[in-house]
Nucleic acid binder design. Sequence first.
DNA 1: ACATTGACCTGAGAGC
DNA 2: TGCTCTCAGGTCAATG
Length: 262
Amino acid sequence: MPELPDVEIYRKYLQSTAFNQKIVKADFYCPRILHDITERRLQSALRGCRFTAAERHGKHLFAALDDTKWLVLHFGMTGFLAYYKDPDKQPSHVCLQVAFDNGYYLAYDCQRKLGQISLTADMESYIKKLGMGPDAMDQELSFSTFKDRVANGRGMIKSALMDQDRIAGIGNIYADEILFQAGVDPKAKAGRLDEDRLRAIFRKTKEVLSTAIDRQAHPEDFPRSYIIPRRQAGAACPKCDGSIEAVKVSGRTTYYCPKCQK
DNA sequence: ACATTGACCTGAGAGC
DNA sequence: TGCTCTCAGGTCAATG
């Protein structure tokens, strides 16, 4: 689930729930999710601290601990956050549970355990180390930077959009939506697209992602012209009288309308 | 340089 | 009802 819009919603959720409360305890339930850090070190980094800020870069969430270090959360395919007081509200695949002094808990839940939890003193260098490109929603991201990063190579445009090293934050389903809204064939060669199509993709990237954030990433609340709520082969295209087809692009199932996307 | 495949994990849903 | 099969919104490494 968690692509840029979902992680942005988690960021706001964290901000509006767990901020500025003292952490009294942290419990870990799946060691494999820890990345380059031991349970002990993370435990001692968390205890006694408060979450004081939350930033997002691509699909990564950075939660500041007393403004001195960052808890880094990546959600894999199935991760999410939950804040609750009643232990009955605890979700079923908790990997990390933080207890606060007000009696509430914050859980990082990840059913398939494909996410990662880490710690860093410096967010910028962490991002750099991972080789991530600029965030897709970064206000500073200009068309020319976007073009330089995305419109090169012989690969397909959908793969380029999903490549976190080029632009961070776009995953399988939002790549499909962006290309559907831009009217571009997901298999088109990234390096062969003309200026107009690239501009359309750039514009739709911002538009689709911000629309998704506004709608809380609930597909049922997306505009009627969106393809995301209709991700099945044979579904009616929301823009023409054709129908949606499923194909594989870089191994990922891709839904698109062959009539609208050339 | 790029596409493809399989691996990492677990569970939901389809089909029988 | 229960079994088996396929698939899932992410990423990485190995292979062609």
